[in-house]
Nucleic acid binder design. Structure first.
Lengths: 184, 184
DNA sequence: GTAGATTATTCGACTAACTAAATAACATGT
DNA sequence: ACATGTTATTTAGTTAGTCGAATAATCTAC
């Protein structure tokens, strides 16, 4: 019966979402940010040079809200604000290296575990996993904004991989930015 | 090269997470709840008869925080508090039908799209998707609390399936509970 | 060039989430 | 029985996120 199949696949998908959700909540904390702040950062990282209006629209909040979030993130050196050349009312947002590091560091815990298991799979099974995941991503409608401008594949994984286990977070990992306890 | 494979699989996984994340933020709003409130509800739904301490631990907050969240959710009839029989300091939390409805309604938009595509797949491909998703869930460490006590498979999907497209949210969908605009 | 629309920011005010500390009720070990 | 630990709640106070309205700067049409 394919009714059972659909159920099974939904349950498995749910388990995946649940696992990532649990991490997701803690990720921001690990980065010393709130969930909302990290989200702004992620959006800017993905879009690469966008405007406050875009971010506000994508998050479903007003410009006023974004304005103060951006202000904080800029004061921490995580994103950069500069007046647009073409339309001087607008502000061009770009993510800084420090901000990019925050975004990249985030998925660490999840990825490390996953990558370890994945690379232990036999070759044919790896291929199958890739094929299916891409199919599922498509079925979820996640397909469009492919070719992420900033987060290239190598960048995403460079940290999570690498066999030097101890310092999973790369080297510096601390700039000016807030504490890991209280995200002002 | 299996380096490329790992990258590809991570990218696909990322796309899945991104898609669900975008929905995830809006889900709470659709339910007229905040993200945190919905999360409490989800945890109680999964665990089925648990204690505030458990929820607090899982969410990484203090008991005090949970206490007031639970109070609100109870006042809205979404969860039930009753003194434990075995240890009368403890409170047994259970989700109410109304609360369950909130949790189940949530993934609708996502699921409908997914299920539609999934059921259009040829048989062998459905089997493959199920197998891989379960493997991935295991690799992500999502494996343990299987056999969800409350959310049985049928319940999860009964709403999302069914070809009557228009009223995707089932019938009643509105009880006493807060508005969809401002989640007090 | 002037009128009207857009873009971003600031200000004031409100709510949700969170904590620490105090309290109350209950359990447990000795 | 008593001391100690656990569980949940309340209280008071902090912070972050959010909005609406007001403001300033700038673009666009006419």
């Amino acid at each position: 019966m394919d009714r059972d199949r659909t159920d099974e696949s939904l349950i498995a998908l749910r388990r995946i979402l649940r696992a990532t959700d649990l991490y997701g909540r803690d990720l921001a904390r690990d980065a010393g940010l709130t969930a909302v702040q990290l989200r702004v950062l992620q959006i800017v990282a993905e879009r690469g040079r966008c405007h406050p209006t875009d971010v506000a629209a994508q998050m479903g909040v007003t410009q006023a809200t974004i304005s103060v979030l951006i202000k904080k993130l800029e004061s921490w050196g995580l994103i950069q604000r500069e007046q647009s050349a073409t339309d001087r009312r607008q502000i061009d947002l770009t993510i800084t290296p420090a901000g990019l590091e925050k975004v990249e560091v985030a998925p660490d815990a999840l990825q490390q575990r996953y990558v370890r298991h994945f690379e232990a799979l036999p070759d044919w099974e790896q291929a199958m996993v890739v094929a299916v995941l891409e199919r599922v991503a498509g079925m979820l409608g996640a397909g469009n904004f492919d070719a992420a401008p900033v987060l290239a594949a190598g960048d995403i994984t460079r940290q999570a991989r690498g066999t030097n286990g101890e310092t999973g977070h790369g080297a510096p990992r601390n700039g000016i930015v807030p504490g890991r306890n209280r995200a002002q």
